[in-house]
Design a protein around this nucleic acid. Structure first.
Length: 206
DNA sequence: GAGTAGATCCTCT
DNA sequence: GAGGATCTACTCA
């Protein structure tokens, strides 16, 4: 298992990067406690031309400032006062591309995730949906936004897992109805048939 | 099983 | 002062 290099993030095609992130391992290691999961669902946010992005139309605020920085750092944001959303910033400086990690398949530290989320046993709700992902991994918007994805506490790695191209499904994004026609763009990608993908309810029939 | 409303707090206008 | 890249529970069929 090896970390993805900075060059992986600093490319210009955010949609392409989003697709390639599927099947990769997201690892957090706060205070020596390691939790990780395979990325099974992402959404691409295509910078200033994307109305669903926080950077739509060149909006630039304190909150989304990290999106304008170098690719390869995290962008964590608190939504609805409850949910922490974990994003990966891509591309170069001044280009606010980002990829939202929407769902993981738990790999390591499942018991820790259960504790963090207050759940009894692992099921597909543990890391399904961006709010749950950051909760399970212990990601907090205050502490963990703007830090490098190549640090020893937070990184994305790849192993031998190979994803068949036909197992990648593209659909419109979720929760961005306000973005008019951009809400229909097929910028959401997930691994076909994976029970940890959000939206596909009760895929596993116990 | 499907649809709807409420929770809850930080950020920007 | 309003609203948001969501989730959950509860109601109704």
């Amino acid at each position: 298992m090896k970390k993805l290099p900075v060059s992986f993030y600093q490319r210009s095609n955010v949609v392409q990067i989003a697709k390639e992130l599927l099947g990769k391992i997201l690892v957090t290691k706060w205070n020596g406690i390691e939790t990780s999961g395979r990325i099974v669902e992402v959404e691409a946010y295509n910078g200033v031309v994307d109305k669903a992005s926080h950077a739509a139309g060149g909006r630039r605020t304190n909150r989304n400032e990290v999106m304008y920085g170098e690719g390869g750092v995290s962008y964590v944001y608190l939504c609805y006062g409850i949910h922490h959303l974990f994003n990966v910033v891509t591309n170069r400086q001044e280009t606010p591309h980002a990829i939202l990690v929407r769902a993981l398949e738990p790999v390591k530290g499942i018991d820790v995730m259960l504790e963090r989320t207050g759940k009894r046993k692992p099921d597909h709700t543990l890391t399904k949906g961006p709010g749950n992902v950051s909760k399970a991994l212990g990601i907090s918007f205050k502490l963990h936004t703007g830090i490098s994805l190549l640090s020893k506490e937070l990184f994305i790695a790849e192993d031998d897992f190979k994803l068949n191209k036909k197992d990648i499904v593209a659909t419109p994004r979720i929760g961005v109805d306000y973005a008019d026609e951009d809400a229909k763009l097929p910028y959401r990608f997930f691994i076909k048939g994976n029970p940890f993908v959000s939206g596909s309810k009760q895929v596993n029939s116990r």
